[in-house]
């Protein structure tokens, strides 16, 4: 899956903004948004928040978890825990990236927040690497990936499913003792098998 697509999915998360304008309710297909009253907070999808912010029509209120104290705590917990800690947001990395890019002026201590989130990401990535390694070594065909966010899962996608697929094939070949040489001739055969379509 293209990272743009993960970001696209994350952009539907709701976030609080403080508009600088007045407007009636907007009837989007996905539901009503607003009404907008200058300086009164209102919840909108992230893509809209960024759009309004770009037009200088609002301030964005960073989500509750986006503060130093809470993130420090999260980082410590992630370090202590052997498993993955549940993140405060399903798309924490993308939300942080977008807000830190487009609304830096609305976030206090933005640079520090950027660093801590990157730390958390790195800790989780190294856990991913070691658990992937264990999984492939044990030739396991099933693993839970609870509490991993879509963006994190996406980093495993280019490699892990294919590695498991190869192990699976070897095991299958071993158990069914398929003839190793195929004499069938076909234009459309196995060279294509297993390539995953549009991930």
């Amino acid at each position: 899956m293209n990272p743009d697509e993960v970001e696209f999915l994350a952009e539907k998360q709701l976030i609080s903004i403080i508009p600088t304008f007045n407007s009636n309710v907007i009837h989007l297909i996905s539901g009503d948004v607003g009404p907008f009253r200058a300086s009164l907070p209102v919840r909108v999808p992230l893509w809209m928040a960024i759009n309004l912010k770009q037009q200088r029509k609002c301030k964005i209120q960073p989500p509750d978890w986006m503060n130093i104290e809470q993130l420090e705590e999260l980082k410590e917990e992630e370090k202590r825990s052997k498993t993955f800690v549940k993140m405060p947001s399903e798309h924490y990395m993308i939300e942080a990236k977008l807000l830190l890019n487009y609304a830096t002026d609305d976030i206090s201590r933005a640079d520090e927040i950027r660093t801590i989130i990157k730390d958390i990401w790195d800790i989780r990535m190294s856990k991913i690497r070691s658990s992937v390694d264990t999984l492939v070594r044990n030739a396991g065909f099933y693993a839970t990936v609870d509490h991993l966010t879509l963006m994190e899962i996406n980093t495993m996608r280019p490699l892990l499913p294919h590695a498991l697929d190869q192990v699976y094939r070897m095991k299958k070949a071993q158990s069914t003792r398929l003839p190793t040489q195929s004499t069938t001739l076909s234009l459309l055969n196995s060279s294509h098998r297993g390539s995953s379509l549009s991930s």
């Binding site: 743009d4 696209f8 759009n51 037009q55």
Partner: peptide, 8 residues
């Protein structure tokens, strides 16, 4: 073909 990005 690609996810829409900011209009501005």
């Amino acid at each position: 073909l690609h996810p829409p990005k900011a209009l501005y």
